[in-house]
Design a protein around this nucleic acid. Sequence first.
RNA 1: GGAGAGGUGGCUGAGUGGUUGAAAGCGGCGGUCUUGAAAACCGUUAUGGGUCGUGAGGCCCAUCCAGAGUUCGAAUCUCUGCCUCUCCGCCA
Length: 424
Amino acid sequence: MLDLKFIRENIDRTTAGLEAKRARVDLDRLLKLDSNRRGLIVELDDLKAQKNAANEEIGRMIKQKVDPKLKIDSMKAIASQVDAIEPIIKKTEEEIGQILMTIPNMPHASVPVGGPEFNQEINRWGKQPIFDFKPKTHIEIAENLDIIDFKRGTKLSGSNFILYKDLGARLERALYNFMLDLHTSQHGYREMFPPVLVNAASMTGTGQLPKMKEDMYHLQVDDLYLIPTAEVPVTNIHRDETLNEEDLPLYYTAYTTCFRREAGSYGKDTRGLVRVHQFDKVELVKFVKPENSYQELEKLLANARRVFELFGIPYRVLMLASGDLSFAAAKCYDIEVYAAGLDKWLEASSCSNFEDFQARRANIAYKGKDGKKKGFVHTLNGSGVALPRTMIAILENYQTKDGDVVVPEVLRSYMGGLDIIKKR
RNA sequence: GGAGAGGUGGCUGAGUGGUUGAAAGCGGCGGUCUUGAAAACCGUUAUGGGUCGUGAGGCCCAUCCAGAGUUCGAAUCUCUGCCUCUCCGCCA
């Protein structure tokens, strides 16, 4: 959420930002409501001041045993005026709130303006593997090895639900264990294990609600949502809190299952593991002081890249253009891994700085040692990393001519020493 | 799921309709004293909105879990929701 005061005082910048983000918002309406509201508040506060003064006097009259009947009667008129104005203000504030909730974050100055075609590749790591045979896709490999059962996943739940079996299940477990160990022992993150069902307030705090409602699983009986990413519960850990400046920055990592309805995305990249409804992810979340947040973004990106480097998976880093940025992000890097079987680059991590956009919405402030509030923190998060597409890259890049899969070295101790996945 | 109790400032805790934004204690901050520290003493100690002022700041409004209601007036009364605790039941 943007600061209404900022919008009021920076109309041109806001308009430009909205355009860069390709968002349509009725700013004139918002500003008009804002000025209406302030006019009404002056009126109302004045009436309330009269009311309060009179009520104090009534109290005094009663103490002095003077009959307050006349005074009380005159107060009734003011009370009814207050009752007339209050609902108008409330309605105005509601509409202001609704419009504010639909305004995306402003892109950072370093972000290229334009659509996805203006995304900038800023980095590339690793060599694409060369085979002396035609590399298979992860679907063929996994079905042949019988480590992923797509058909039975569908039987259990529906299309694009996955059943991992045997060494497939083991590899999944090895991946998130490895990543958690890496980020906690080498990158300074604290490990969290949050609920995967959260309430509407949490979903609103990080910006999924109200805009992304259709993309989420919702349990109507209890009014709870299945999280699309650990970003939601982990960022909301500090919702409505004031953090101590000396405790910042806070680094949290969490492994959770993520749930996405992917409504409307059928037919596009939906085969195999590329786009599934339920998947695992290790997430990195930071709460930092505003002046450090862009340095912290670079460090976060480095932490995510390290995962692929240790796995030996070639990747490239894109800085997203303004029109490709998510609703809440001011700046975002995507890491795409190369998958030899599909011969495609697949987005496997996304590292974003939200500046104070989420913190304002979720009310996460910080204070100095003297106890004085210093404003909102900046929040960042990134995948560290998402499992399915990492799994794709491992299966496809490490495949052998015989259809086996070599286990990347760093994962072997997590696989009970196994160095190659063969058919049972 | 059933029965009961309760949610007050950073914390403990008083307050059951009329200067109560809220006693007291603890903690925090500033000061006096001290070579320094502790103790003692003195002072100070919430947030949001609006408005005036170049500014320091002044003034007004709101806020005692949240929302609705009763009343001239609500921390205090009524209703609903959320949460916590105790007992009973069920349960991985």
